[in-house]
Simulated scan of single mutants.
Amino acid sequence: MFQLGFNLFHEISRPFNMTYRCFSVSMLPGNERQDVERGGKIIMPPSALEQLTRLNIEYPMIFKLTNKKTRRITHCGVLEFVADEGKVYLPHWMMANLVLEEGALLQVESVSLPTATFSKFQPLSEDFLDISNPKAVLENCLRNFSCLTTGDVIAIKYNSKVYELCVLETKPGNAVIIIECDMNVEFAPPVGYKEDERVSRGEEFSEGMEEDPEGMMPEPEGFIAFRGEGNRLDGKKKKLTSESESEPQASHSRQPYVRGIPDYNYQIGTLRFIRNYRSANAKEEIPTEPFEAFKGEGFTLRSAKSK
């Protein structure tokens, strides 16, 4: 009876706290692990898994990484337990945040974090603005992360290019879990970004297209008839009688605007269907002879001699 009574009580949770030699993923024996570099998870030894199964810890497994020399702290998840005994393998960006060298000592401790509700990121390069939908790209990349820590600089890869983002703020705490949660995301202006100096592509397009499309036609080449100028015998300049004569002769020598050049006055949200209509004054061609049905001639296969 006493044994049954003791089993009714929950086992007191004991934290996991170990110290390992840390190395970057590039030092991991075997094939290169790009899935580790793109996320926020580490690789631990099999003995850590055996010890974690004996402890009453919360899931998902979240660990606090501490560099005692620099007192830098971050949080991460675990991807696999295949590392050599006494070693852990980290992404390169995580080692940079902790200011760790290859083979340095790292304290790994299991912790429990709140679920994220808000996070704010700041790109470290203006190239991040070239992404058409940054929130969707970030959401897809954060699937390889288990948690976020305020002050960390995470690295995400998109279209074979690595973008670094600084985690400016997280709620409801400085470290949060981002697994199966509804999190609002905001972006701060990139480092070194100046709105006055950066002109959007739409403004550049609109400013460049104010010119008449006919003026963009190439200058004619070769012989052009009647391109000369007239001179008076007395040496005086000819008086201009109309505005049309004041225009430079070169403007009349340009090729006419032809169909096939884009509509530079196009406005977003409108569609134009251009068709060729006959003018009202154009007269339809009248057939010379009226149409008569079955007016054709017939032929027979018999020759005239057989009749």
Rank of each mutant, 00 (worst) to 15 (best):
M183T: 04
P123K: 03
Q122W: 04
G151Q: 06
T150F: 08
S200N: 09
G103H: 02
V191D: 03
N144L: 06
L138W: 03
E197S: 12
F81H: 06
A136F: 09
Y89N: 07
S200C: 11
A136C: 04
R198V: 11
K171A: 08
V88P: 00
S125T: 11
G151D: 04
V199L: 13
V153Q: 13
M183Y: 00
R198S: 10
W93E: 08
D196W: 15
F81V: 00
V78R: 01
K171D: 09
T150N: 09
L100T: 05
R198L: 07
W93F: 13
H92T: 08
S160I: 07
S125L: 01
A175M: 02
S132I: 13
F145C: 00
F145K: 03
R143P: 04
D182W: 12
S119G: 07
C147W: 01
S206N: 07
Y193W: 14
P189R: 11
E126C: 15
N144Y: 08
T149V: 10
F118P: 02
Y193G: 13
E195Y: 12
E203A: 14
T170P: 00
A188M: 10
M183D: 00
T149Q: 08
L90K: 03
W93D: 09
L113T: 01
L105G: 05
S160K: 12
C181Y: 01
E109R: 05
E101Q: 15
F118H: 12
A175F: 00
A175D: 08
V153L: 14
L106W: 06
E195I: 15
N133V: 12
M95P: 01
R198E: 05
F128A: 04
F187N: 08
F128E: 07
E102D: 03
T150H: 06
R201M: 12
F121S: 05
S146C: 11
A136S: 12
L113N: 02
T149F: 09
L90E: 00
C181T: 06
N174P: 04
R143M: 10
I156H: 00
V185P: 02
A175C: 05
S112I: 12
N133K: 15
K87R: 03
K135M: 10
D127S: 07
L124M: 15
S112K: 06
T117R: 11
P114E: 05
N133H: 14
M94C: 06
E139D: 12
E80L: 10
L79T: 08
P91M: 00
G86W: 00
L142V: 05
G192W: 01
V185N: 06
L98W: 05
